[in-house]
Amino acid sequence: MSEQIPVLDLAPLQDGAPGALDRLGEELRRAFTEVGFYFVRNHGIPQSLLDATFEAAERFHAQPIEAKLALKINEHNIGYMPMRGATTRVNAVGDVALPNANEAIFFKRDLPADHPDVLANVRFRGRNQWPELPGFREQVLQACDAFEGLGLRLLPLYARALGLEPGFFAPYFDEPMYTLRMSHYPQQEPTAPENEFGIAPHVDTSFMTILAQNRIPGLSLRMPSGEWVDAPAPEGALLINGGMMLRRWTDKRFLATPHRVINRSGRERYAIPFFMDAGYRAVMAPITADSSPADDRTGREPPITYPDFMTGYQRSNFHHAADDKAEKVQMQGA
């Protein structure tokens, strides 16, 4: 299985080796046209930081339910989502399953109270909700900074994979939208219904998902052959994939590969995926195969922005967003 998922080693790029960017861009192109996932090594994020972030996720979910519900998820998709608080619909693969058997807390960029978007109540640009756990906020922010930094360093590879200049994506990611999700998957009993999953088969919504490898099994991928296989966890590597936004932006040339989680390990499982997208107001017009200038592109989908896309997704999949109150939040600048 590990041989089927490409491994990109960033060391030559960091060392300034001649031709490294073009070689890695070609490897990335193959990864996204043949598999939809890839590993990255020598990524610059210390294992100690990842371990501490997993520990923070475990500390959060070990709290009493009352403490967690005090931070209940809101229309900005920030806060705590209780167990079975989401059903995979918009991005489902196959039939819609039962509500997902996990709980999670979501964090976005940590905006100050006087930020213009916060003051205007712009959707998905609200303030984070923090638990009263010593050192927790600092750990989450450190992890977000590290993941964001890696994502930005990878953007030139994505551009070269599409035959574009290395700096093509930079203006779109001046202040990227991102979400760190800290998930808890309890042990699923053998008697659980067949269509209940930790997370049902789905594709991500994001441009880029960075996943710190989990030593407790449960994640599986649907390979191009249609076979579901367990995801490996090679030491020192991060697993990265693209989602619906990347596929749309690349005019469907890049894959968004389905995956799912089933936790029958006998242990509690935690995950800390980091979902990264372009800036809130960036207009993403499909990048067609001829790589024509942005204003002249006529792809298979119309241009879209982050709030346009995420509003429909959230209302369809997250139970807390399925009522009219979420529509009262302004969509300024969208």
Rank of each mutant, 00 (worst) to 15 (best):
T298P: 00
L180R: 12
A334D: 13
V35Y: 01
E235L: 11
Y178Q: 08
L255V: 11
N91F: 10
M244K: 10
R297T: 13
N241V: 03
P46F: 13
A31F: 04
S2F: 07
E27D: 15
G149F: 05
L221I: 14
P46N: 08
G163N: 10
A62H: 09
Q129S: 09
Y80D: 02
T205S: 14
R23H: 09
T88Q: 15
M177S: 11
N195M: 11
T191V: 10
M208F: 02
G163D: 14
P234V: 06
D174P: 00
P302E: 13
P286F: 07
L152D: 06
L141H: 01
P12C: 11
D117Y: 12
F197L: 13
P116R: 07
F197C: 09
L150K: 05
A104Q: 07
V40G: 09
E75Y: 14
M182Y: 01
A56L: 13
R125W: 00
A92Y: 01
L24C: 13
M310G: 09
D9H: 07
A92P: 00
L157Q: 00
R23P: 10
P193R: 03
F197S: 09
M81W: 01
N121E: 06
A231P: 00
R41E: 11
D174G: 09
L152A: 10
P46K: 08
L157G: 06
L221S: 03
T288W: 10
R315Q: 13
A62Q: 13
Q188K: 12
P190K: 03
R300I: 10
V140D: 07
T209D: 01
G167K: 02
P303H: 03
R160V: 07
R109P: 05
R30N: 15
W249F: 01
L150D: 01
L69Y: 05
P156Y: 01
L164R: 06
E66N: 03
D51Y: 10
A233L: 03
R23C: 06
A285M: 03
S292A: 15
R253I: 11
S220R: 09
P234D: 14
V118R: 00
